[in-house]
Design a protein around this nucleic acid. Structure first.
Length: 552
RNA sequence: UCGCCCGUAGUUCAAUUGGCAGAACACCGGACUUUGAAUCCGGCCGUUGGAGGUUCGAGUCCUCCCGGGCGAGCCA
């Protein structure tokens, strides 16, 4: 197994003694939204590296913009992290460092490396120039340090309105890298902050806060996504100007995660919630940590998935089927097997002794002998799946059809004898006979059947609401055709029915994932365990046969 | 237009100093089967973005070209 380029860099740095063998990372979310799959990749990368190299990893909230941030997100992010099984060595906030950041900014001004500008935002933008175009220096660029310092203090003390003044780094207005064209370091925002409340009216920008926060904490490897590549020169420039308590941290960028049929943009996710396309951020169709949790995607599967896809600088698009295969593999080992009928059809056994109940001993998980067995009631009045009976079977259809014998799993062989139809010709009940010699599912004479079907005893059945999901976005690349992912929304991504389920399903705990035999994995809702979400279906050869036939 | 980054199988990644281009998922087939599941076995898939160059030998080094991504917030 070879190392990804980030881990390789850590190994190389350790070999060269760059950080004295120390390894420290951090996961730095902004508390302005919920964690999603993209964050999960970053989380397991950062915490994983710390763990593997005997280092440390802090959770640090990048809370430098009070206009969009909120304490509720802080709590949600902590919860999601805990659910992912990750334990930060410490929890910090960029706002913990506001005093130090401000003091460092004063140093920068004194050193003639920053100045207070009264140019308005729009003009600054114009003067910045464009790609291949020259920049124009601000008229205040050479303001004496003492004057800037005085103004900077007045900014802090509330003497100016929002946006009236800003602190800018004095770097190079002709740089090819736009982030070096005198970037803004401090801005005035009269907005209460969720932690510092009204103590500050000036806030550092990301570029003045991030690298310094890393440096204060002793971070060695500051890992972020590719779009920050151009910021690295600024990250380094800022740290170069300061006296640091530790070795200077280094930024390394990796490609963010893209998955087919999924959208990771916070903005689009928010729109889905606000326009009611989903129930909320924690809807089982959302690629948020909370959504995936409700859906029944286990943290362990997310971990093996992110391990498998590794990390690189190549912009890539992962097929969602890969994620699902990790989820299936996990549940195949751990999920208890249960029987549930999603689209019920009556099956009546005409030669069954009236009122007789036979309790069948059934294995809970063939992949795990320790999971034990349970008792399931069998009677002459059953529910079977509508899909499992055809009056007029297509080729290669192995299930129940008039005159054919099949096995009812863990019970008896039955042979369909007749079907009752309604006025429209729909089958509403199937009549069958059973062979009492086949109890448990084997014929003493050794005869075989082509298929085995699940069932539920009507008198014993419990009802459960079951949600089956289609892809939220029909297109593998949402928005590719029109530019707006919302145009690719599946019009009916959730299909809800009332299922008939075996009695044992009344005992599942919230959040538990079970396999409905032959159908897929289903997660009992985290709030209401009488509701199930289809996590992912089983591989379905019959569905493939039909699909191929459709294609011709 | 300028700068930075990235191009290896359908997809995601490997390939030790420059030394036989491989794996997983997907797909196809077979075995097994009380889940058309799982499991096991096998198969298919490549102009390593292109063209030159260096070399006994290039995915790897050099040059040019092509394609894709990001960048002109007082967002992060």
């Amino acid at each position: 197994m070879s190392l990804d380029f980030v881990r390789q860099k850590v190994v190389d740095d350790n070999a060269a003694g760059t950080f004295g063998g120390r390894v420290q990372t951090r996961f730095p979310p902004e508390p302005n939204g919920f964690l999603h799959l993209g964050h999960v990749k970053s989380i397991f990368l950062n915490f994983g590296i710390a763990e593997e190299f005997g280092g440390t990893c802090f959770l640090r909230f990048d809370d430098t913009n009070p206009e969009t941030e909120d304490i509720s997100y802080v709590e949600a992010i902590k919860e999601d992290l805990a659910w992912l099984g990750v334990q930060p060595d410490d929890v910090r906030f960029a706002s913990d460092y506001f005093d130090q950041l401000y003091a460092w900014a004063e140093d920068l001004i004194r050193a003639g490396k920053a100045y207070v500008d009264d140019t308005d935002a729009e003009t600054i933008s114009e003067q910045r120039g464009g790609f291949g175009q020259p920049g124009v220096e601000s008229a205040r660029r050479d303001r004496p340090a003492e004057e800037s310092l005085g103004l900077f203090h007045q900014m802090r003390d509330g003497a100016f309105a929002d946006g009236e003044l800003s602190l800018r780094a004095k770097i190079d207005m002709q740089a090819d890298n736009m982030w070096l064209r005198d970037p803004v370091l401090y801005r005035i925002r009269r907005v209460p902050h969720h932690r510092t409340e009204d103590r500050w009216v000036v806030y550092p920008t990301y570029d003045w806060a991030h690298g310094q926060s890393d440096a204060i904490e002793g971070v060695t490897h500051s890992i972020c996504t590719l779009e920050f590549s151009d910021h690295r020169a600024l990250y380094d420039w800022c740290l170069d100007q300061l006296e640091l308590p530790f070795e200077q941290p280094e930024q390394t960028e990796f490609a963010r995660l893209n998955v087919t049929h999924l959208v990771m943009s916070k903005r689009i996710l928010k729109t889905l919630v606000e326009q009611g396309h989903v129930d909320g951020w924690d809807d089982a169709r959302m690629p948020t940590v909370r959504g995936m949790r409700r859906r029944g995607f286990p943290a362990a599967a997310l971990r093996s998935f992110t391990d498998h896809i590794s990390v690189a600088k190549t912009n890539s698009m992962i097929e969602i089927e890969l994620l699902e295969s990790f989820v299936r593999t996990h549940h195949n080992r751990h999920a208890l097997r249960r029987m549930a009928v999603l689209d019920p059809l009556k099956l009546t056994i005409t030669n069954w002794p009236d009122g007789h109940v036979e309790w069948m001993d059934v294995v809970n998980n063939p992949e795990d002998p320790d999971a034990g067995t349970r008792s399931v009631p069998f009677t002459g009045e059953l529910w079977i799946e509508q899909d499992d009976f055809r009056l007029d079977p297509p080729p290669k259809y192995f299930r129940l059809t008039p005159g054919r014998e099949v096995r009812l799993r863990n019970a008896f062989f039955v042979t369909a004898t007749d079907a009752v139809t309604d006025d429209d010709g729909n089958v509403i009940e199937v009549l069958a006979t059973y062979d009492p010699e086949t109890k448990g599912g084997n014929a003493p004479d050794g005869r075989k059947v082509k298929s085995t079907m699940h069932w539920v005893s009507r008198p014993h059945a419990a009802e459960a609401t079951v949600h089956r999901y289609e892809r939220l976005f029909e297109s593998s690349h949402p928005g590719e055709a029109t530019g707006d992912p919302l145009d690719d929304l599946h019009p009916a991504s959730r299909h809800t029915t009332t299922a008939r389920v075996e009695p044992a399903l009344a005992e599942v705990t919230a959040g538990e994932v079970v396999q409905f035999e032959r159908l897929g994995y289903f997660a009992a809702d985290v709030d209401d365990p009488t509701v199930f979400h289809r996590t992912v279906g089983l591989r379905d050869e019959w569905a493939n046969i039909q699909k191929r036939k459709q294609k011709g």
